[in-house]
Design a protein around this nucleic acid. Sequence first.
DNA 1: GAATGTATGTTGAATTTTCAACACCGGGAG
DNA 2: CTCCCGGTGTTGAAAATTCAACATACATTC
Lengths: 219, 219
Amino acid sequence: MKNYYPILERCPLFNGIRMEDLSVMLGCIGGRVLSVSKGQSISREGDPATHVGMVLSGAVRMVREDYYGNRSIVAHIGPAELFGETYACAGIAALPISFVADADSQVLLMDCRRITTSCCNACAFHSRIIFNLLQLVATKNLVFDQKIQITSKRTTREKLMAYLLNEAKLQGGRSFTIPYDRQELADYLEVDRSGLSAEISKLRREGILESEKKQFTLL
Amino acid sequence: MKNYYPILERCPLFNGIRMEDLSVMLGCIGGRVLSVSKGQSISREGDPATHVGMVLSGAVRMVREDYYGNRSIVAHIGPAELFGETYACAGIAALPISFVADADSQVLLMDCRRITTSCCNACAFHSRIIFNLLQLVATKNLVFDQKIQITSKRTTREKLMAYLLNEAKLQGGRSFTIPYDRQELADYLEVDRSGLSAEISKLRREGILESEKKQFTLL
DNA sequence: GAATGTATGTTGAATTTTCAACACCGGGAG
DNA sequence: CTCCCGGTGTTGAAAATTCAACATACATTC
């Protein structure tokens, strides 16, 4: 177990937890390590959603199957990242997706109910874990909300401006750097890359902004 | 305080809490009632995001202001509904929006930190509240995720089909009823109403579905 | 320095969406 | 019954997006 500490330390779920408290705490919340080989599933659609998982080594993919049986990969979860926390915390009866090992992996499975219910000895770190979990789920919420806010605009120009104005606000100035290249920004805004490039050029010609690669200035 | 119990009882945050435990518990989590008159703000953009609010009477609106100072109403929060929980739980320094009374109102403000940190006497209902809060935030997450999943499709037809297939899956059958009229569905899918109507007709002509108002059957 | 690859910008045609306007239907009010 | 109204379907023109293809710039590699 000890050899996973460097990974556990990197996971925000354990922020503020001293490593020396980890083993006690893992017992407290029912943590157990599972080894899975590539292609094997950790949980399948329809399984009860009771566990929060964390990738210790390898990788896990989140797979969704639609009405007609078309499979698609929803997310790729790497070391120190959590999976299944939304479903477990939402208290839904059955998982709407599956988690499949993307490589030979080891994952830490924790019982969500035992995280949210204080243990009898009311350990200090326990309430910290709850706080961290809540913070993680709420932060994801903010990220989603922001994306919806932006992509619900109807035109490329509106989406782009909503994104840039928000970025300006966040970074506190008219000049700022975005973390995406053109293709990634197009993917985020759910628009066509070439159309996006064209729109940026147009805004530049109209004197609304200046830009150079990932650097933007609103005028 | 007692006269608010019927409202409190309706809020999912207090699911599984006995009413007779409420007053102890509210003390435990630092609950206090605030009366605000119409137009007065409860929290302003930039304020620390430390409180979870609940509307006891009246209504509250969530207001966002963009870079250029354009104000827009993001959400309307009615009795027994929560507000600010996402921001407080995400642990962000400052609110990105404001909460303004939409009518003369009374709201219950609770200290988020005192919810997430177990009180010294480790009361049973306290852990239930945490569980409920986590569940609320996570559920909102699922709702957002589903909406993104659907609206990230590029065409009206794809969005519509993604929505209907998901609805079919959720309701467990090819026949189901949707909770939206045409305009509302268009708003949810972020498309034009008339275009949506046209697309539904087309799918019907192509023999892909049957529909009658809010009743749909996939073939 | 030439070859290669990647990121970005540009363009025009095909497709799709939006917008405005109107027709139709059924229910409720008077 | 008739009138009115909200919800829905239809249509055609205008606007915007997507798509494919190519141009350009720059960095890397050999």
